[in-house]
């Protein structure tokens, strides 16, 4: 299945913000995203087994998605948790949360798979560490795809 990709405005804004900075300033912005990552809501804080691990990341990071149908259009909700000792991973999680949480599911699924390559931080973080961001995005998209298909098995094309 191929679907058209498009970068949501919020994520594009984050890309542009990083692109306007150099060197150390980019690291500090990434740190800020991590520091703004909200704590898990109680329903997950006490049920870590519901969260999916992302083994490609060097640090333990867990994520879960929900689909909110209260407004008619299915909306994606994203939740992440990673230890305070892993600020890069928290930063990546913060970027995805800030850029994607609350968007229609279709928009989250349309985020290009190479988003991590478009976020201009590899020069200060190393390409190696960018894999964690790719892995997190692909898991978000896979969870949402599966949830949409489970809810609507006949129309999953």
């Amino acid at each position: 299945m191929t679907s058209p990709t498009s970068m949501p405005a919020g994520l594009q804004e984050i890309i542009d913000d990083f692109a306007s900075l150099v060197g150390q300033e980019k690291l500090l912005l990434l740190l800020e995203f991590g520091e703004n990552l909200p704590a898990l809501p109680e329903r997950y804080a006490y049920h870590p087994e519901l969260l999916e691990p992302v083994p490609e990341c060097q640090s333990p990071v867990f994520l879960i998605t929900e689909i909110d149908r209260s407004s008619g259009t299915p909306v994606a909700r994203l939740f992440f948790t990673a230890p305070l000792e892993s600020p890069t991973t928290r930063g990546f999680a913060g970027v995805l949360r800030e850029g994607l949480d609350g968007l229609p599911v279709t928009e989250v699924l349309a985020v290009p798979a190479d988003f991590a390559m478009q976020l201009p931080v590899a020069d200060v973080v190393s390409p190696l560490r960018m894999r964690g961001l790719s892995a997190m995005l692909s898991r978000v998209q896979r969870q949402l795809t599966k949830a949409m298909q489970d809810d609507n098995p006949a129309g999953a094309h």
Binding site: L27, G34, S59, S86, P87, T88, V125
Partner: peptide
């Protein structure tokens, strides 16, 4: 450190950072 941002969260006063990858 393993994590390239950990130093930025707070480091020993006067310490500099050397990153293994970069």
């Amino acid at each position: 450190d393993e994590d390239v941002l950990l130093y930025e969260t707070g480091h020993i006063p006067g310490a500099i950072k050397i990153d293994w990858v970069l």
